[in-house]
Design a protein around this nucleic acid. Structure first.
Length: 870
RNA sequence: GCUUCUGUAGCAGAAUCGGUACAUGCAUCUGUUUCAAAAACAGAAGUCUGAAGGUUCGACUCCUUCCAGAAGCACCA
């Protein structure tokens, strides 16, 4: 009797074998076409759960299949190893961040990712907290610095009191820290390092259109994030101080005749200057209150917009109107010019504000060219200009252009494009990050560290991490004190480290040449592998990581390091894994804090990695959410058990052997022919489902299940026949009933068919369930040389003619309603199909006494007879 | 508030172009096997596609409105 399916007996054995053979190594030179398969590398937090495994499984299946299709596949893995959790863990467990990180990496690599059966080229493993990686991060920073892309600016920054550090705008979510949703971000003014991502704003926006292999929502999110708005900057002269002007940015210059006030942001320096003595106290009080409001509070006031007049006025250069200046906190200092013109008639916010403060509303755009009298709400639709002097009668879209031109002529304004995207603030007052390779010298100012002196090593010994009082680097003299690279005098190192998003903005380039000691990467290698052909990762990185990586790639291109414009050709955003949480009583994302995690170790021991992989792929399409279910996962274990049983029994009875030839279709009997066709149909369907960019794993697996069901049926049919039709199944040596027929009872053609079916079934399953398919591949006798493996065997092909049925079921409809289904030969001509339909008895009775108005024939599908009563 | 996505058997999910509504798994039921149960094997049942309109010979599929759920954005001038 064949053995039971026991994944523990086979999985680790094969994992070690593949590693020793180097099956998954990528080659920097090859005759084969290249395929760069990338999955977002993890932060080594310590323990992956089944929810995390989904993304690695998806990416692994893609890699394995492309390898079988004959591609030279690069499928690397590494660790996004700098970051705050390591410091927090250090404080909590009295462990150095480095040790904590390294231990986590070891566990996640050896006990989790490897045991999942992944096919990574571990020789290219990259760890961002290793000096041989971050030294090159520093080198890239210096290249950007030389190009003027890294700059130091005094800027109001977002400060998280919990992290004790500055955050990028991208890391502020609803006015709170992205790591501490309960912690409000404070505004501070500090001198900080920025990367000038805005220099690439146009290109980052325009190239989104070329990224057709990306999910539409991700492209839209990036587009919104970049936020290009085209308009004009207009200057209003202050009535009482003719040498002072207020600049406003507007996307609606066409409404300038409707301006009834101008508003400054509370932080705008002009506020103090333009406030009259009578208004001073009230204005100061208001500004003071606004400063203490967080952005959250400011948003909460959305419904009741507040503001205070400064007491001074500006002159509208277009019509000479004298309108008041106000300060209001709905205007942001950080966008545009920190001042706006108020046009209540044609802007919803301005309308609310004007109603609140009893300011006049002046209509200048009208749908039909006539004034509408009192407006109930702001009119923001297109229309024709009224009350606008020489511009009256123009369509407002045309007026935008004309009015801006007028401003240019009169030297009171210009065309302007504004971006929502800001420069990327990268300074972090943290220890566990990549040191910024610069030196502050009293004589020379800021001096870059010499290339030869890189890396600036992050000290590991003698560091005390308390989480208090900023980075420990600021208290470490041996790190701090350095000679100026320019003049040689005493100087101080920069103690800020870089945002960890920098580490992950170029790791995909390093993979192309991961062990290079002389360069960040050889250009030839990067040009060979880039761009990434298929990137897989979570939707949570739709903006930050992907935008930064795109920026880095373009900047590297301009430094001359790479050739490609875009790093990721195709992107798959997998959905999250959810499970019922007894804490919240709801189905939620799998996470430790929600208490709904399923660990990998226990599951792998009980059911094996192949079952975990299969369930993950099967339960939902990759982009959709997936609810983890123990029963469902066991179902996959059961399926693999069925595969194991039938294949091992067929081998045992001698019905299946290694077979490399083709089956002679015409020599098979009816059920043999049908089964042979099923094999070809399955190859076609699975190939189609796993096609580049389609990746519909759930249906691919369903097809394999169908094939296995068909195999059971066919095997038992043969078995019943071989026992002379007495209905009693053959018994194996230990007396258990066998499903499989005895090999000596079968014809050569039937033996070949069974062998052919098994060969293809295993090949189709190989990318998804790599261990069991390799084991059975071996048992069937396909592994002859030690370095044979199903995973380097060519993906199967099919014969198109064997995927087509000659007999089809023709559907007969009357007025679109089904009346009968009749068998018909494939390829029947329209005329013949029509005749067949009209001759059918059920059809006849349905259309009796009615006039046939039209007959619609869909070849090989249906005939629809349209009738009407006479 | 705005934008996008999703809604198909008890559950998850199939259904390339508009052309037979449901492949596959879970759960359920029946039978075989068993002293019995489990497992295994064999078989069965189930819906009219969130709602209402429209286009069409024909709509899960396209259009409109509404309902429900999820995600993103949210004073960006």
């Amino acid at each position: 009797m064949a053995s039971q399916y026991n994944p523990q007996d086979i999985e680790e054995k094969w994992q070690e074998h593949w590693e020793s053979l180097g099956v998954y190594r990528a080659h920097d030179k090859s005759e084969k076409p290249k395929f760069y398969s990338l999955v977002m590398f993890p932060y080594p937090s310590g323990d992956l759960h089944m929810g995390h495994m989904r993304v690695y499984t998806i990416s692994d299946v893609i890699s394995r299949r492309m390898r079988m299709l004959g591609y030279n596949v690069l499928n690397p893995m590494g660790w996004d190893a700098f970051g705050l959790p390591a410091e927090n863990a250090a404080i909590k467990h009295q462990k150095h961040p480095q040790n904590w990180t390294k231990e986590n990496i070891r566990f996640m690599r050896d006990e989790q990712l490897k045991k999942l059966g992944t096919s990574y080229d571990w020789q290219r493993e990259v760890t961002t907290c290793d000096a041989d990686y971050y030294g090159w991060t520093q080198w890239l920073f210096l290249k950007f610095y030389e190009k003027g892309l890294a700059v130091r600016k005094e800027a109001p920054v977002n400060w998280c009191p919990d992290c004790h550090t500055v955050l990028a705008n991208e890391q502020v979510v609803d006015g709170a820290c992205w790591r501490h949703m309960e912690t409000r971000v404070e505004q501070k003014k500090m001198s900080q390092w920025f990367l000038r991502i805005t220099a690439y704003a146009d290109e980052l926006l325009d190239d989104l259109e070329r990224l057709t292999g990306w999910p539409e929502p991700v492209r839209i999110m990036q587009q919104n994030w970049i936020g290009k708005s085209v308009g004009a900057e207009l200057r209003f002269t202050v009535e009482s101080k003719p040498n002072v002007q207020i600049s406003v940015f507007t996307t609606r210059p066409d409404t300038v005749f409707g301006v009834s006030y101008v508003v400054l942001a509370p932080e705008n320096p002009l506020v103090e200057e333009l406030t009259t003595d009578e208004q001073r106290d009230a204005v100061r009080k208001y500004v003071d209150e606004a400063k203490h409001k967080t952005e959250l509070d400011r948003m909460a006031t959305e419904k009741s917009k507040t503001g205070i007049p400064l007491g001074t006025h500006v002159i509208n250069p277009y019509n000479g109107d004298v309108v008041p200046i106000l300060v209001a906190d709905y205007v942001l200092m950080t966008y545009g010019t920190g001042a706006v013109m108020g046009v209540p008639a044609h802007d919803e916010r301005d309308f609310q504000f004007a109603k609140n403060l009893n300011l006049p509303v002046k209509e200048v755009i009208s749908p039909n060219g006539e004034a509408s009298g009192e407006l109930e709400a702001a009119y923001i639709e297109p229309g024709v200009l009224i009350n606008s002097g020489e511009f009256n009668g123009l369509k407002n879209e045309d007026a935008k252009e004309k009015i801006t031109e007028w401003a240019v002529d009169q030297a009171c304004g210009s065309k302007r494009v504004n971006w929502r995207l800001r420069d990327w603030l990268i300074s972090r007052q943290r220890y566990w990050g990549c040191p910024i390779p610069l030196v502050h010298c009293d004589a020379c100012g800021i001096v870059p560290v010499k290339e030869a002196d890189l890396p600036v090593v992050l000290p590991v010994e003698g560091i005390e991490i308390t989480g208090q009082g900023g980075s420990p680097l600021t208290r470490m003299d041996s790190f701090l004190n350095v000679k100026c690279p320019a003049c040689g005098k005493d100087a101080k190192r920069e103690t800020d480290t870089m945002d960890t998003f920098i580490d992950s903005s170029w790791y995909f380039l390093r993979y192309a040449d991961a062990t290079n000691k002389k360069e960040a990467f050889a250009k030839a290698n990067v040009d060979y592998w880039m761009p990434v052909d298929q990137y897989v990762g979570g939707i949570e990185h739709a903006i930050l990581h992907l935008l930064y990586s795109r920026f880095f790639t373009k900047a590297c291109r301009d430094v001359g390091l790479v050739t490609c414009d875009e790093p990721f050709e195709n992107l798959l955003s997998q959905g999250m894994v959810t499970k019922f949480s007894s804490i919240s009583g709801r189905i939620e994302k799998m996470s430790k804090s929600r208490g709904n995690v399923v660990g990998t170790t226990d599951f792998f021991k009980k059911y094996g990695a192949d079952s975990a992989r299969l369930f993950t792929l099967f339960a939902a399409p990759p982009e959709q959410e997936l609810e983890w279910s123990e029963e469902g996962a066991i179902g996959q274990y059961r399926f693999l058990g069925r595969v194991w049983r039938i294949v091992t029994e067929l081998i045992e009875t001698g019905a299946v052997t290694a077979f490399h030839g083709e089956v002679v279709h015409d020599k098979l009997d009816e059920s043999g022919k049908n089964f042979h066709k099923l094999v070809h149909k399955t190859i076609k369907a699975v190939s189609n489902d796993l096609e580049r960019g389609r990746y519909i794993f759930n249906t691919a697996i369903a097809r394999c299940m169908e094939l296995v069901n068909g195999l059971y049926k066919y095997a038992q049919e043969l078995n019943a026949r071989s026992t002379n039709g007495n209905g009693k199944a053959a018994k194996s040596a230990d007396g258990a009933a066998l499903l499989a027929p005895q090999g000596h009872d079968l014809s050569t053609d039937e033996l070949e068919l069974l062998s052919f079916a098994i060969r293809n079934l295993l090949l189709l399953l190989a990318p998804m369930a790599p261990h069991i398919s390799e084991e059975l591949w071996k048992q069937a006798g396909y592994i002859v040389k030690d370095n044979d493996s199903i995973h380097v065997t060519a993906w199967p092909t099919f014969k198109e003619e064997l995927t087509i049925d000659n007999q089809i079921e023709l559907v007969l409809q009357v007025n679109g309603k089904i009346v009968n289904k009749v068998p018909a030969p494939r390829g029947l001509e329209k005329k013949a199909a029509e005749e067949l339909a009209l001759a059918d008895d059920k059809m006849k009775s349905k259309i009796e006494g009615q006039a046939v108005k039209k007959v619609i024939v869909v070849p090989d599908k249906l005939v629809n007879v349209v009738v009407a009563p006479q």
